[in-house]
Design a binder for these strands. Structure first.
Length: 635
DNA sequence: TCAGGAGCTAC
RNA sequence: GUUGUAGCUCCUGA
């Protein structure tokens, strides 16, 4: 425990990267594709456990969570990812299977954190222990392809290859192209904390997830005790922990039926009519009980569309009457079907011809432009306020860098902030107005930088900030560092989701992911090779390295012909403090490996003549020899 | 091409 | 120390 804490203070938080490649490393992509295809055909799954806790799936789960920022944040048992990766792959797998044999997850650590939208309010976090997070990741990997096949096109939150931009684009489309001028704004009260466990299980069943042992494990995860900040422990009766790896997926499972139900409720919906009586929509058979909701069924409502982002959703309607009925019907449906309450103050109908409606940080309405109604959107007031205060703070950091921060770092941080905000809010048609206002608000704070701000850099410089902003008259420099002008943004129309993009079909992947550029046979062999006496981290990094090096020796550049020729070398030897992290490992041919460690003249001579290295290769070799504590050799 | 690290957003 | 999913941007190494 002590060593864990010590490590934590010295370890920087890793950051998650795109993980499409990882499934390929662990030879799981085809399996996931298969699940997706089966689910799309309407097949059900009553035996998923063997797959979930298969060796490859578990090791892939480790790979996927090791990059999480929170992997070095301990749960209630004080353990971090280090506790997992120091095991050998075999014991890691064995441990997961043992834990889940009679699964009883450890207590989830409750932590209240301020909401970034409104820092005066807090959001309850539930941080599971690292082994439990690993187990949840195993489950997620298998459930996601099944669920993706069933989920609605109108749901954008927490889903692969979908984002806010697409949700906003869909909203614009409904307003402008489909002429839906009324929107119902919904706000579910504390959604994550109020998810009904038995309803959730029923929804899983309806989606075809029918493995009883798996359902039991999910139940156990939901019922995991919560260790409150004051140290006492509580047993949850509802809700799914915000911080649990499967929680976002569970949220979509619960609300998936809402998407299909709403779309099926309007008269003459071509999709609903074509599929027949609201059943079998999207391969779901969960609508049989929807007959009881007369409020909607008898009104023959006109065209309407839902746009959902996690628990935040809007329904676009043709007219006021339709919108008001929808509000009532959906509220009732949520209560009766999912046992969820909406917040009456925040749930309302908005006439988009007269008022702005806020969604995902953007407020939007319709205005007349040359006899046509077009979308006019702005940065939401809350966001403007937040940007102002954060930008002020960051400028102050440049003026007077706090200790532990240099001026250069403060500028970089400010630029990243400005570019980040611009990147997101550029989908509002009126962004430039809002950022002009923000810039105006900041002039006083900018004065603190005084004459340090120049119109030209000291020398000629490049980089992304210059590329993007140097055409602005407001561009300034401090020495050689550009300071991004916050007022300078141009709007960029949000893009709709391309239907063809899909993570779980080879065709759908083609647009977002390139296949490995070399023969993967050797990679497979490497994956199957058991590494005795080595850690999971080592085994995992070895695969990355092999791919990063295109299956070639780092010194000679030769393609590996046999498994035995592949040697993974510690640059700084373990007995001198070298670790199993990526940076400390490199893949070389067997003879090169021998040569790195060789001390006897005859061995060196033999290997050298065998390899006949050129100058550059020799230099690489000697660098590795030096790191290993050996003197250089010459040909 | 790979990996890691910094920033941003939504919920 | 603040978890999680998803998306975006940039930088640095090999």
């Amino acid at each position: 425990m002590v060593t864990e804490n010590k490590r934590r203070s010295t370890t920087k938080k890793p950051k998650k990267v795109n993980n499409l490649r990882y499934a390929e490393y662990y030879d799981m992509q085809e399996t996931f594709d298969g699940l997706y295809a089966k689910a799309a055909k309407g097949e059900t799954f009553d035996s998923l456990m063997d797959l979930i806790f298969s060796k490859d799936n578990i090791l892939l789960a480790y790979r996927n969570i090791k990059g999480n920022g929170g992997s070095v944040t301990p749960g209630t048992d004080g353990l971090t990812i280090r506790a997992i990766e120091k095991c050998s792959p075999e014991t890691l797998v064995q441990k997961v299977r043992n834990i889940t044999k009679n699964y009883s997850p450890r207590a989830v650590r409750r932590k209240e954190i301020p909401k970034q939208s409104d820092p005066s309010k807090t959001r309850p976090l539930g941080i599971p222990c690292i082994w439990d997070r690993l187990i949840q990741q195993c489950i997620l990997q298998v459930l996601e392809p099944i669920c993706e096949a069933k989920f609605s096109e109108n749901s954008y939150g927490f889903r692969p290859n979908r984002d806010c931009e697409q949700a906003i684009a869909a909203s614009y489309r409904h307003m402008q192209q489909s002429h839906l001028h009324y929107v119902v704004e919904f706000d579910i009260k504390g959604f994550f904390d109020n998810v009904d466990h038995s309803k959730l299980i029923k929804q899983m069943w309806a989606l075809g997830i029918r493995d009883k042992r798996l359902i039991y494990i999910v139940k156990r995860i939901l019922k995991a005790p919560i260790q409150l900040e004051n140290g006492t422990t509580a047993a949850p009766v509802k809700g799914t922990p915000q911080g649990g790896i499967i929680s976002p997926l569970l949220a979509n499972i619960v609300l998936n039926e809402l998407d299909w139900w709403v779309e099926s409720q309007w008269a003459d919906n071509p999709v609903a009519v074509a599929r027949g009586r609201n059943r079998q929509l999207g391969g779901n058979t969960v609508f049989d009980k929807s007959h009881g909701y007369r409020a909607m069924r008898t009104t023959r409502l006109k065209e309407m569309h839902i746009v959902r982002y996690a628990d935040d959703f809007r329904i676009f309607c043709q007219n006021k009457d339709s919108a008001e009925r929808t509000l009532i019907a959906v509220t009732k449906w949520l209560k009766e079907r999912l046992r969820l309450d909406v917040s009456p103050e925040k749930t309302q109908v908005v006439n988009l011809n007269k008022h702005y409606s806020e969604f995902l940080g953007i407020k939007m309405r319709l205005t007349k432009k040359k006899n046509k109604l077009v979308v006019q959107s702005r940065v939401s007031e809350k966001a403007v306020k937040r940007i102002k205060t954060e930008a002020k703070q960051k400028i102050k950091n440049i003026a007077r860098p706090p200790k532990g921060m240099t001026e250069a770092r403060a500028i970089l941080n400010y630029n990243a902030f400005v570019m980040g905000e611009h990147n997101y809010y550029q989908m509002a048609t009126g962004v430039s107005l809002d950022f002009r206002d923000i810039g105006y608000e900041l002039t006083r704070t900018m004065k603190r930088l005084g004459d340090r701000l120049k119109k030209e850099p000291k020398d000629n410089i490049g980089g992304a900030v210059v590329d993007r902003y140097s055409c602005s008259k407001l561009m300034r420099y401090i020495k050689n560092l550009p300071v991004a002008p916050i007022s300078y943004v141009r709007t960029k129309a949000p893009m709709c989701k391309k239907r063809s993009i899909q993570k779980y079909t080879p065709e759908g992947r083609a647009e977002i992911h390139e296949n490995l550029g070399f023969d993967t046979k050797m990679l497979r062999a490497l994956l199957r090779q058991e590494v005795h006496e080595q850690s999971a981290a080592y085994a995992d990094n070895r695969l990355s390295l092999f791919c990063a090096q295109y299956g070639k020796c780092a010194v000679t550049g030769q393609v590996f012909e046999s498994l035995g020729d592949i040697h993974c070398h510690h640059k700084l030897p373990k007995n001198r403090g070298g670790r199993d992290n990526y940076q400390n490992l490199i893949i070389v041919r067997e003879s090169v490996h021998i040569l790195i460690h060789a001390t006897s003249e005859s061995t060196i001579a033999k290997c050298l003549s065998e390899l006949s290295l050129n100058k550059r290769q020799l230099a690489k070799l000697n660098k590795l020899r030096k790191e290993a504590g050996n003197p250089p050799v010459s040909a």
